[in-house]
Simulated assay, not measured.
Amino acid sequence: MTKAPEIVAKTLDSQPINISEKYYGNNLLILFYNNDCLGCTGRALPLAYKAMQEFKGIEVIGIHSSFGRAITKEEIVEIFTSKELPFPIYLDEEHKAYDLYQCEGTPHWIIINKVGEMYRSFFGSQENTQTRLWYSLSELTQAD
């Protein structure tokens, strides 16, 4: 495995954050998504929440990648029924982290292990991707 590229993004309050440093030492599931993507809001975000509940050894975060349209904190929070974030969400305003990880579209999943190595990368939210994601998360947490 290779060391995962460093991710610098912004909090929803526009504060810079080094995600790689903040989550180092934890298994991390990153969901790159976009509010305008129906596969993201309809399948991927609920799946990320389910993963957070099922795999206690995994930190889950979302990274909203923007492609030409700025988004507000209110717009991000608004898509959740509870009007509260189920897990931390960060902003990738110029899709730099998205590009760095060579994401194929949204939603795109990145799994990083505790020592900062990229463990797996998946594009999509359909059943096949969900199965591969679940298998990888199970495998990673059982290895701990």
Rank of each mutant, 00 (worst) to 15 (best):
residue 2 T to A: 08
residue 3 K to Y: 10
residue 3 K to R: 04
residue 6 E to Y: 02
residue 6 E to N: 08
residue 6 E to D: 13
residue 6 E to R: 05
residue 7 I to Y: 04
residue 7 I to N: 02
residue 8 V to I: 15
residue 9 A to N: 11
residue 10 K to R: 13
residue 11 T to S: 12
residue 12 L to P: 03
residue 12 L to H: 02
residue 14 S to Y: 14
residue 14 S to T: 12
residue 17 I to K: 15
residue 17 I to G: 06
residue 18 N to E: 10
residue 18 N to G: 07
residue 19 I to S: 13
residue 20 S to C: 11
residue 22 K to Q: 14
residue 29 L to G: 01
residue 29 L to T: 00
residue 30 I to E: 00
residue 32 F to W: 02
residue 32 F to H: 04
residue 33 Y to Q: 05
residue 35 N to I: 10
residue 35 N to C: 08
residue 36 D to I: 10
residue 36 D to G: 01
residue 36 D to L: 09
residue 36 D to Y: 09
residue 45 L to A: 03
residue 48 A to D: 01
residue 49 Y to F: 01
residue 49 Y to Q: 12
residue 49 Y to W: 07
residue 50 K to W: 08
residue 52 M to F: 02
residue 52 M to V: 01
residue 54 E to A: 12
residue 56 K to T: 11
residue 58 I to Y: 02
residue 58 I to V: 11
residue 58 I to A: 04
residue 60 V to W: 00
residue 61 I to W: 01
residue 62 G to P: 06
residue 62 G to T: 07
residue 63 I to S: 06
residue 63 I to E: 06
residue 66 S to F: 00
residue 69 R to V: 00
residue 70 A to T: 04
residue 70 A to D: 12
residue 71 I to G: 09
residue 72 T to P: 12
residue 73 K to Y: 09
residue 73 K to T: 04
residue 73 K to S: 08
residue 73 K to P: 05
residue 74 E to I: 07
residue 76 I to C: 09
residue 77 V to P: 08
residue 77 V to R: 10
residue 80 F to P: 07
residue 81 T to H: 12
residue 81 T to C: 10
residue 82 S to I: 11
residue 84 E to Y: 14
residue 85 L to V: 09
residue 86 P to G: 10
residue 86 P to W: 11
residue 89 I to E: 03
residue 89 I to V: 15
residue 90 Y to Q: 13
residue 91 L to A: 13
residue 95 H to M: 08
residue 97 A to T: 08
residue 97 A to Y: 06
residue 100 L to T: 12
residue 104 E to P: 04
residue 107 P to N: 12
residue 107 P to M: 07
residue 109 W to K: 07
residue 113 N to E: 14
residue 114 K to V: 09
residue 114 K to Q: 12
residue 114 K to S: 14
residue 115 V to D: 13
residue 118 M to D: 05
residue 120 R to A: 13
residue 125 S to T: 00
residue 125 S to V: 00
residue 127 E to G: 02
residue 127 E to I: 03
residue 128 N to W: 11
residue 128 N to L: 15
residue 130 Q to V: 07
residue 130 Q to F: 04
residue 130 Q to E: 15
residue 136 S to H: 04
residue 137 L to E: 05
residue 138 S to P: 00
residue 138 S to V: 03
residue 138 S to E: 15
residue 141 T to Y: 06
residue 142 Q to V: 14
residue 143 A to R: 10
residue 144 D to R: 12
